[in-house]
Computed example of a mutant assay.
Amino acid sequence: MTMYNKYGDQELWVRIKLGDEKAFIALYERYWAILYAHALKMLKDKDEAMDVVQDVFTHFLTKVEEIELSTSLKSYLYAAVRNRILNQINKNRLKDSYVNSLVDFVNQGYDIDDQMTYRDLLEKIEEEVNNLPPKMKKIFEMSRTTGLSHKTIAKELNITDHTVKKTINRVLKALKAKITVLFFPFI
Rank of each mutant, 00 (worst) to 15 (best):
M1S: 12
M1E: 13
Y4E: 00
Q10A: 06
W13V: 02
V14K: 12
R15G: 00
D20A: 02
E21L: 09
L27T: 01
Y28V: 02
Y28F: 15
R30A: 03
A33G: 14
L35D: 04
A37G: 15
L40C: 03
L40D: 08
K41V: 06
D45Q: 11
E48G: 13
E48M: 15
E48T: 15
A49C: 07
D51M: 12
D55K: 10
H59I: 08
L61C: 06
V64N: 11
L69R: 00
L69D: 00
S72W: 04
Y78A: 01
L86Q: 08
N87C: 02
N87L: 03
I89G: 04
N90Q: 05
K91F: 12
R93M: 09
K95E: 13
N100Q: 05
V103P: 01
V106T: 08
V106S: 05
G109N: 03
Q115Y: 14
Q115M: 13
M116H: 07
T117F: 11
T117Q: 09
D120M: 04
E123Y: 14
E123F: 10
I125S: 07
P133C: 11
K135G: 01
F140Y: 15
T145Y: 11
S149F: 03
N158T: 08
T160Y: 04
T160G: 10
H162P: 07
T163A: 15
V164M: 01
K166V: 15
T167Q: 07
T167Y: 06
L172R: 14
L175K: 07
A177P: 00
A177E: 04
T180A: 10
V181L: 07
L182D: 15
